[in-house]
Design a protein around this nucleic acid. Structure first.
Lengths: 214, 214
DNA sequence: CATCTCCACTTAACACCGTTAAGCATTAGA
DNA sequence: TCTAATGCTTAACGGTGTTAAGTGGAGATG
């Protein structure tokens, strides 16, 4: 009875092929410029073939997006368990900004594009909260560690998740504004990497318990 | 020879009518959900009539966007010349966040949507740099005032524009992340207004020359 | 008054999009 | 060898932004 299994395998292989084609096109052209027909062309199938593997375009990109989140979690995992939660947090910020700079189209879909409310698939649910696979959980955990070790001002540690959201927002603000407005001649942008590092410094300076030495 | 003038006036009136219809539709539905045909329906003209007044859809929304920037500058103008540059900067942050909360679709087009590089119209050039009409210039001016009065750490005041960009990024990070991910069940968001105020406090704490009293 | 010209606007159409319905081979199982 | 299922294709629908061609009415000119 190896037939059904082979069928299953082939089907999954094509599914993966579609995802890869979409990923490539998407990375170079950006979300809204990639059409179903382009993806179909690249894998040399008819456009409708895609619909045998994905409910619609949104579902396809949702899945792409999900794998990007896993990729980001993978980037964070490479930090490993740096013992000092402050250094760990700093590294998170730097790698996060690097991710945004290297994959702006992905970043845009992940963090700058509103999506209608959608209930999580059980697949996603399974990853959630596990810092190894959930970049957000990793961030929250790192901030909470810092709180637990008394690094940050106590009045900020009542809600470590909110503190994490604020730190995240700071770095996100720098990189997302750059992605959205980089071609804007109205604004004379300072160097991006420098601004990211300054933002991280500012955040630390404001949340640390002990004043940062000049 | 009043004929030509009347023609001109009528043409401008229709142009304004198109803009207003687009504005209304856009505010309630968001950018990409508004089609030329919808706008045409609302003003009860044929879709092609719009093209007699705007080069294409992008030009129309570009213009809409420009008027939104003027509106934001208007919001800031209401702050007036609060004498204390610190209080003025705080108010800028709060009003900016309020603008984002009240007009998320506008905010998204203004600050979260990449646009291809486009040379400014002479109209836009005219407004640029004037703090009364240029919200960004108003922000930079306010930060520079704070620097001049010695409010902020001297090492940050070498480049007031960069400092302004950082402060802006902080608040933008909070509100834009909220707009993009508000429906995301993955994240348990803290109260938005509270986060905005905390972000502003954090920014001040980190840039002030004198340590902020607890 | 008749005619011409111009111009704002319309209708029709094109090329593209996401998506669905129907058809058509190939292949597994009887 | 016949039947059924499966995986894909072709054709089509309704939508989009946009353009080409046509139309009708008002001002100018005889």
């Amino acid at each position: 009875m190896g037939v059904k299994e082979r069928r299953e395998r082939d089907k999954l292989a094509l599914r993966e092929k579609i995802l890869n084609a979409a990923r490539e096109l998407f990375a170079e052209k950006g979300y809204e410029a990639v059409s179903m027909r382009m993806i179909a062309d690249r894998i040399e199938y008819s456009p409708t073939a895609i619909y045998l593997h994905f409910r619609d375009k949104d579902a396809l990109f949702q899945e792409l997006c999900h794998s990007d989140f896993l990729a980001l979690a993978g980037v964070f995992r490479q930090i490993g368990r740096v013992s000092d939660p402050i250094e760990r947090l700093r590294k998170i910020g730097l790698l996060y900004a690097q991710f945004a700079r290297e994959k702006p189209n992905h970043y845009r879909l992940m963090f700058m594009t509103p999506r209608p409310p959608v209930d999580m698939t059980e697949l996603q649910q399974a990853h959630r909260g596990n810092p190894e696979e959930d970049a957000y959980a990793f961030l929250v955990q790192t901030v909470a560690d810092g709180c637990a070790e008394g690094c940050y001002r106590p009045e900020l540690c009542g809600n470590p998740e909110q503190l994490a959201q604020l730190v995240w927002s700071g770095v996100h603000g720098v990189v997302s504004l750059r992605i959205a407005k980089c071609h804007d001649q109205w604004i004379d942008w300072a160097d991006e990497q420098e601004s990211v590092e300054m933002m991280i410094d500012l955040m630390f300076r404001s949340i640390m318990r002990e004043p940062v030495p000049a």
